[in-house]
Design a protein around this nucleic acid. Structure first.
Length: 836
DNA sequence: TGATCCCGCCAACGT
DNA sequence: ACGTTGGCGGGATCA
């Protein structure tokens, strides 16, 4: 009776969840004794478990008999009574049953992937820890990683909010962007190169060299990557300097997103992550510790179905590694990347203009937008403090968030602080929060007070505002209640669109989105299915196995499908297939979804009232399209823009109406900034943009825009504003002392400036006052030198498409895929990646 | 064995 | 002072 021991422990459960688990490795045997540490009485989890295997199911059934969720502990006691200490010991959950991965599964099972924003998804660490019967310490591990993906965010002590995967794609984009800026690709190459040289006794000075290059990485101090709208959930969190696990997690993810076969070995990751801060001492113990942490992170990421474990077999031997199985992340409008028909490896060079264009186009995008420079933290903090002081918090953020979107309603007021801040910024260009604090003036406070009333209210879907009704026309209204302009925003989760009454200023902010619209006129035919070809050719990946089963057969997903409607994971190959076969209507639908998402993004953005990145809007690529346009223009287009996760958001007809936020809704906001800069200095990125879009396709919206603006009196009749004002906030950056070419500094400043500009404009509430303020803006405006050219390497290294886009999988589980990791630096070498 | 990674000490931090 | 977070690494467990 000894075999009482685990057998069908959670370990096997997990394994069976994994598709590749083969009968060969038949799990020892079902456990005869209920685990002392019973499953969480979450229905989800139970379903998950029971679906995992018949054995488990039966066990669950047995347990079901006495499972009233409150009797879990009882069971434990019984168990204790009926077993001798010895046996009881054995019945204790095995190590694997306590694994972080499983724990994470349990944890995740508690919350929907895409929680409706209406329901409050709060996480009380204590409760969770108790319910999962683990120490809180473990929950931290999970939550920290989740936090790094913005799937949760901290509200307060012991309190987190669950966001689910709503922000995931955005986060991943941000991470990818930052990862690229961090030259992670190069670092990875470096490591590979180094290893390669090792094999040929080339070590020695060479290593010094390569090692040094790590240290010289200017981004080494990169801190936590934030998503706009997600940032000040808790000032305390931000103020903590040690976000190691969070940051490490993000970096880890970056590595995946940036490397071309999206496979990262633990070792390599550890080296890079260590190399960043501690370039020199590749301490053994430090390395070990790093690895340990990476395992922790990897476990969570695995539970999230973002990565899976593989083994990379090189000449050297088998190394543990992880492969990205999450959604593909496209940095910008995907159609730009897939224009050419046969894109050989150096594809990024074949589209450099586009690539760089968009990068230059949205200079504040990516790192600037998402990474908070250390020196900004203070500012941020103080602002947060101010906010808290000012916000009399009649309703806790918790309660506020009930209506539509937590983000949306959580921070109604702070935006109003901007004017002062902006002013201050313009005057002193000091980023010290303290000073700002003192500058908070009465108007700002007023705004704060009034803005809560402008909190979006749900409205009947039918009440969609016609797109012509620009918020601008109402901008003259004071920022009080009733002056809100209806702005239709789709409700991503429920598929119901809401007309949200936005404070005019907020509306402006939202409209920031449409810049992407300007990019759209790009003819986008002949893109179908290219990516798959590309990646096949490029990566020579013999994709095998289980991606399919891995993802689709996963009981977790199947079972929780209803509450995770959007997740329905697609295999890369599936996606490929879909892409190439996509029916027009599918495309349209997806487009809608995309729109939805992008708008959702918008929703996410403006509430923050602080970081309002123009740039982020970009990936909401089709946001500006009318559906007709989309249908016509893009019917042939490959729907690569939406990662699987984003692609399955339920859509209702009403959403169709919601997707149009006309360009000129937006532009006014930018325009207010731009006249100065436009006149002052032609922005480099403009020309880029023009070359791609404007020149070829006269943009009608430009004239409309100008007309509108002139009509409204925002700009003098003679002035013509380019249709792509997006960038023009950039030159506003007017800090003369900022000669440093350090992108970090610049980015920071740009971020600050754009933020401030946004806030400023958003907070003014009255166009007039904004216009007046604009006058003030003009003075300090200094033409800024064009965005630094993209390093050739950056684009060079970039390879389009992920390895996931490989051929359809048919290989047996356990088969190995052979990956030749082509890199510019090192000769092609064969790697074997095997599933475990 | 080496790969994994649980566990919980304890310090930094917040209140 | 006390509770929360979470870095960290010993050493148990797994394969």
């Amino acid at each position: 009776k000894t075999p009482l021991k685990q057998a069908a422990t959670s370990a096997s459960v997990l394994t069976e969840i994994q598709p590749d688990c083969h009968p060969l490795t038949t799990p020892p045997k079902p456990k005869e004794i209920l685990p002392a540490d019973p499953w969480t009485p979450t229905s989800n989890l139970k379903m998950l478990i029971s679906a995992a295997s018949p054995e488990i199911r039966s066990r669950e059934q047995r347990k079901e008999l006495s499972n009233n969720t409150s009797e879990v502990l009882q069971a434990k006691h019984c168990l204790q009574e009926h077993l001798w200490g010895d046996e009881y010991e054995k019945s204790q959950p095995s190590r694997k049953e306590k694994s972080l991965g499983l724990l994470c599964h349990k944890f995740l099972a508690r919350y929907p992937d895409y929680p409706s924003t209406a329901e409050h998804n709060f996480i009380c660490l204590d409760e969770v820890a108790e319910e999962l019967s683990v120490e809180r310490r473990r929950i931290y591990d999970i939550v920290n990683v989740l936090e790094s993906l913005h799937m949760v965010s901290r509200l307060a002590r012991n309190r987190y909010v669950w966001h689910g995967r709503h922000h995931l794609s955005k986060t991943l984009q941000a991470l990818k962007k930052v990862g690229e800026e961090n030259k992670y690709t190069q670092q990875l190459q470096m490591i590979k190169k180094r290893e390669y040289e090792h094999e040929f006794d080339l070590d020695g000075e060479r290593n010094e060299e390569t090692g040094r290059s790590f240290g010289s990485n200017e981004h080494s101090e990169m801190s936590f990557v934030e998503l706009p709208g997600m940032e000040f959930r808790a000032a305390s969190v931000n103020s903590r300097k040690d976000k190691s696990l969070r940051v490490m997690s993000q970096k880890f993810v970056m590595l995946f997103l940036v490397s071309t076969p999206q496979i990262v070995s633990l070792e390599g990751a550890a080296k890079i992550l260590i190399g960043e801060d501690q370039l020199e001492d590749l301490d053994k113990s430090k390395f070990k510790t790093k690895i340990r942490r990476l395992y922790d992170i990897a476990n969570v990421l695995s539970s999230l179905q973002l990565i899976k474990k593989v083994h990379v077999t090189e000449e050297r031997g088998r190394k543990p590694a992880f492969k990205w199985i999450g959604p593909e992340v496209c940095l910008q409008d995907t159609e730009l990347e897939t224009t050419s028909t046969t894109c050989p490896p150096p594809i990024s060079e074949s589209i450099p203009s586009k690539e760089q264009c968009s990068k230059n186009l949205f200079p504040s995008r990516g790192k600037q937008s998402f990474t908070r420079h250390p020196s900004l933290i203070k500012l941020v903090k103080s602002i947060e403090n101010d906010r808290r002081k000012i916000q009399s918090a009649p309703t806790s953020p918790v309660k506020i968030s009930a209506s539509t979107d937590g983000n949306l309603s959580a921070f109604p007021g702070p935006i109003a602080q901007v004017p002062t801040i902006a002013k201050h910024q313009l005057e002193g260009q000091s980023k010290k929060g303290k000073e700002m604090k003192t500058k908070l003036s009465a108007p700002a406070l007023d705004c704060n007070v009034s803005s809560p009333e402008a909190v979006p209210k749900p409205k009947a879907p039918g009440a969609a505002a016609p797109s012509q009704q620009t918020p601008l026309t109402q901008a003259g209204c004071p920022p009080s209640q009733g002056s809100a302009s209806p702005l239709v925003l789709p409700h991503t989760h429920s598929g119901v669109s809401y007309a949200i009454y936005l404070h005019p200023s907020q509306a402006h902010t939202v409209t920031t989105y449409s810049p992407s619209f300007m990019l759209q006129p790009l003819p986008c035919a002949n893109v179908t299915g290219i990516e798959s070809i590309k990646s096949k050719v490029l990566n020579q990946v013999t994709t095998e196995e289980g991606d399919n089963q891995m993802v689709t057969d996963d009981p977790t997903k199947a079972l929780t499908a209803e509450e995770r409607p959007t997740l329905k994971p697609e295999t890369s190959s599936q996606r490929c297939l879909k892409r190439s076969q996509a029916l027009q209507e599918n495309n349209v639908i997806k487009r809608r979804r995309s729109d939805e998402e992008s708008l959702d993004t918008a929703l996410t953005f403006f509430p923050s009232g602080y970081l309002i990145p123009f740039t982020q809007c970009t990936h909401g690529n089709k946001a500006g399209f009318s559906n007709q346009e989309k249908a016509g223009l893009c019917s042939l287009q490959q729907p690569t823009y939406s990662p699987p996760i984003a692609g399955v958001i339920p859509v209702t007809a009403s959403d169709l109406k919601a997707v149009n936020i006309p360009a000129f809704h937006i532009t006014p906001l930018n325009i207010m900034l731009s006249p100065t800069s436009v006149a002052a200095a032609p922005v480099l990125s403009n020309s880029c943009l023009n070359s791609v879009n404007t020149s070829s396709t006269p943009n009608p919206s430009s004239s409309v825009l100008n007309f509108t603006l002139q009509h409204i009196g925002l700009i003098p009749a003679g002035v013509h504003v380019p249709a792509n004002p997006v960038l023009q906030h950039m030159p506003v950056s007017s800090q003369p002392e900022n000669v440093s070419d350090s992108s970090a500094n610049r980015n920071m400043q740009e971020e600050a400036v754009s933020k401030i500009s946004c806030k400023f404009l958003a907070g003014v509430g009255r166009v007039r006052s904004a216009a007046i303020a604009l006058q003030q803006l003009k003075a300090p405006c200094v033409p800024k030198e064009p965005q630094e050219p993209q390093t050739a390497t950056e684009s060079f290294f970039r390879t389009p498409g992920g390895p996931n886009t490989g051929s359809s999988s048919s290989a047996k589980p356990g088969a190995t895929e052979t990956i030749s990791q082509g890199t510019p630096y090192i000769p092609q070498r064969k790697l074997e990646v095997s599933e475990d």
